[in-house]
Write a protein that binds this DNA or RNA. Structure first.
Lengths: 350, 350
DNA sequence: CACAGAATTTAAAACGTTTTCCGTGCACTG
DNA sequence: CAGTGCACGGAAAACGTTTTAAATTCTGTG
């Protein structure tokens, strides 16, 4: 309305700090009740008569009252904030973003906000966790890519801080997690390659320090042993290797004798890199070699249908993590808060 | 220390709500000063003698004091929060994540936290903006994919709320933005295709409603007209089309007479889809046709070096947006707060 | 019809800051 | 040495909520 006060834009162009924002007091005056009563009525406290409860809710809705987060947080100590630790490795291919959309959906109708704490470029992830615990920056924590004895998990367990990981650990104390069944993925992927009649299979594994390295290796080896088929595992390569390194490796190896003709690729980038490396050597997908890849977006199957894909629904994972965390925060026993996602062979309609 | 109170884990496993956290009062007692003085000393107020100022800072550092965000926010009305509007279209290829890492870097040494407000799955983006303005949920806003008369921008301008967009608008009132020079990209891409001796060029454009649709079209057409070369522009397709749709279109078109042999692809997905479509028809990249693509990760050039790429540094864009927003919040005049990123022909070392 | 007890409502304190308004004590001036 | 001004520091109020403890009204009973 009146914008006369400030001469030019040398001043912060903010509306007068929270002018006229309705508070409990506003409602109290409007209804003639005390602030306490209003607060209780909105909180659906038992000792408030149904009558006033309804009246207060009506007025609140009418004037568009929304509790002040700062005041609530100051008073109660609860932040109504969920923090997501973002890993640099998640930069590619929307990994982080998918999970976040899922999380957001889970937090949709709750008072929780999602704040992202990117692996402070200098310090390690552990520092970020420490910071959040120490200074009560959030009510709960979400992160991924766990190690068997992940220091972040240890820290959180020691402090009894609510969290959900994407990935399992090997601590004896249980904790909430959502994980994809990477054993099943690797087993199924190898199996499919074998069924297609491939002579020798290979797999690009995650970095050794991550928990799901073991899971994948195990699933792959189980299928290989059951079928008694030849296999090999690249030692100089992992899922985090740059795409050109993977491509070059595949190209080189495929020119040597006894090269594998079946590839399990637990990521879209590695699959694309493999396709390029092989086609550089003149091999054609689907006839001379096959790929079974894990897919987290629709990209791969849309571009190159000859790649067989197994889907991991990251958005669903994010949503599940959000729900588990909410339960964890209200004190649900940890034991029930673990989810193992099954590999999916058909795709969700988005 | 004592954790006897609660019987089992039917209760939130939180440490006693903010027990023993140092406050201004703690410092006041330790130094024998008044709370007021401590507050002033930490805020480097002029009326405090250098001596006490130093002493307070020392004690504060020693006991690891950190101001309570809730109290600050309640008192001052400033939230110390920057909100990022996340678009569903940014799910793919780490678009959102790159920008967020950049933002995070810019906010690194500031008190600002980054909270992500994903396009509330039901309501439109405008509702989210409205919600944030109305309820003072943040001190500033960041979002992307602007339209010429973007309703979000209009709303923010009307309310004098600080924000920075990724992308320009056509409002006469100026506002802070960071944008990529898509005119230059399209011009350069077409130019390169022409230099390579292509006979007929084409480009996959963004959705018509977005501002940079115009920029790209204009850049492309300028190069085409200068060279007097044949061109065509797919009408049924845009950058947001699913990859398989792009692939099928390219496949179909390339089998018809007078097909284009030079493709400008302003995204990695569209480039990959084009490659697949063309190679399905037996055309080989680099000899029978060429692609110049915009690349926002290292993926494309690492996988398929025969694609010529022009780089858009999204992390840098994010960082710039963060910096601009900070300046905007302290009231810097808007006119100086616009950045046009130049297309980059060499890659940053990450 | 007075009164115990339940049912409902209220006043006031507290959370940790920032800020407005004052009170010191001191060094000068005249 | 009274008075003036300045440099420094402090008391107290306020932000909007939740919560503790207490006050009020209402009910039915004897």
């Amino acid at each position: 309305m009146s914008r006369i006060e400030k001469p030019a834009d040398s001043e912060p162009a903010r509306s007068p700090p929270r002018a006229g924002k309705p508070t409990l007091k506003t409602i109290a005056e409007l209804t003639g009740l005390a602030i306490t009563t209003v607060s209780r009525a909105l909180g659906n406290a038992p000792q408030i008569s149904e009558n006033t409860r309804r009246r207060v809710h009506e007025v609140a809705a009418e004037i568009g009252y929304l509790p002040d987060r700062a005041a609530q947080r100051l008073k109660t100590g609860r932040t109504n904030v969920i923090s997501v630790l973002l890993d640099p490795h998640e930069e590619i291919l929307g990994f982080g973003t998918s999970i976040m959309h899922g999380l957001a959906r889970a937090l949709q109708a709750t008072p929780y906000h999602l704040i992202v704490t990117p692996n402070f470029l200098d310090g390690s992830n552990v520092d970020a966790v420490n910071y959040i615990i120490r200074n009560g920056m959030a009510d709960g924590l979400i992160f991924s890519r766990t190690e068997p004895f992940d220091p972040r998990v240890r820290l959180l367990l020691e402090n009894g801080f609510p969290f959900v990981t994407h990935g399992r650990t090997e601590f004896s104390t249980p904790h909430a997690f959502v994980d994809y069944d990477n054993f099943a993925f690797a087993y199924e992927a190898a199996k499919r390659l074998i069924v297609k009649g491939r002579r020798k299979v290979t797999i690009i594994l995650p970095p050794k320090r991550l928990t799901f390295y073991q899971h994948m290796l195990h699933g792959f080896m189980t299928a290989v042993r059951e079928a008694g088929i030849a296999y090999e595992i690249p030692e100089t390569l992992d899922l985090d290797s740059p795409a050109d390194m993977i491509r070059d490796y595949v190209r080189r190896r495929s020119a040597e004798p006894d090269a594998p003709d079946g590839f399990a690729c637990p990521g879209e980038v590695s699959a694309l890199a493999t396709i390029t490396g092989m086609s550089d050597q003149g091999f054609t997908l689907g006839t001379e070699y096959d790929i079974v890849a894990k897919q987290t977006s629709l990209l791969l199957s849309q571009i190159q249908p000859k790649v067989e894909t197994i889907y991991e629904d990251l958005k669903a994972a994010g949503e599940a993590m959000g729900q588990l965390l909410l339960q964890r925060i209200v004190g649900e026993p940890v034991e029930d808060l673990t989810i193992l996602q099954n590999p999916q062979f058909s795709f969700p309609t988005p």
